[in-house]
Design a protein around this nucleic acid. Sequence first.
DNA 1: TTCCAGGCTATGT
DNA 2: ACATAGCATGGA
Length: 279
Amino acid sequence: MIYSIENNNIRVYDKTQFNPKHILECGQVFRYGINDDGNYFVYSNKYKATILEKPEYYEIISNNTDYFVNYFDLKTDYNLIKNKLKTNKVLSPMIDYGYGIRILNADTEEMIYSFILSQNNNIKRIQKIVEKMCEIGENMGDYKAFPTSKNLSKLPFEFYKNLGAGYRDKFLKSTADFLSLQNLEDVKKLSTDEILSYLLKINGIGPKVASCVLLFGFGRKEKFPVDTWLEQVYYNHFSKEKRTRDEMQKYFENEFGEYSGVAQQYLFYYERNNSTNNK
DNA sequence: TTCCAGGCTATGT
DNA sequence: ACATAGCATGGA
């Protein structure tokens, strides 16, 4: 076990497979930041965690210990996963670069809305719009919870229009109307392919967004979302052979198997911080 | 001003 | 089944 619970705080001892910067800045979630004292904090669903760095461990202070043990996937040994993935010589140095990345077990609905927003958009603006959505979330004291679909579905279209989400506003609205009538706990029991076709029926969700929701919101690590960055990764580091995004996803998922999504995050994080034409 | 951002839908062939 | 124009908004 790489962690222990002390006074409702989580202590993560293995810094070689847990790094808050790597975890939060590899693009899997959008509601996070850095305090004045340099510590990362993150919101998920209606909860909040702050991660303090101590000499021997990271300490996670939160208002729901069990939730964040699962959220940070602390029962999974990422050194085992990394060792398996390192058999790929292209991926290996990129794992060393983002060694502390973990796949978060993020809130399913929050992932659905967040990644609908992500299409043809930039990460800064996605964060802004998600934050604005949370203005109608439950008041948790010094912050707001992510709104529930039931509450979102009651709001007029004007609310979505005012988010500044552009043409995606109608997707958010119809998704809220749909999800307010759904029980996702039942959906979580389905196979990955069954959830995929379930998600693809939602207007505004295509193959890439569905893959992200499966990976971060349903814990399906075998999915490898292909976006602009991974398309660049493919041509810069893997092959010059022309492929569609769908073909690239099949190529990568065949290469990395049950840990495709973990590999995708190392690649994404590396490329976003090292490619020549980035920002 | 023009181009682009974690793509998708709608509308052609 | 496959190709692509158009899309809202804001920042560079």
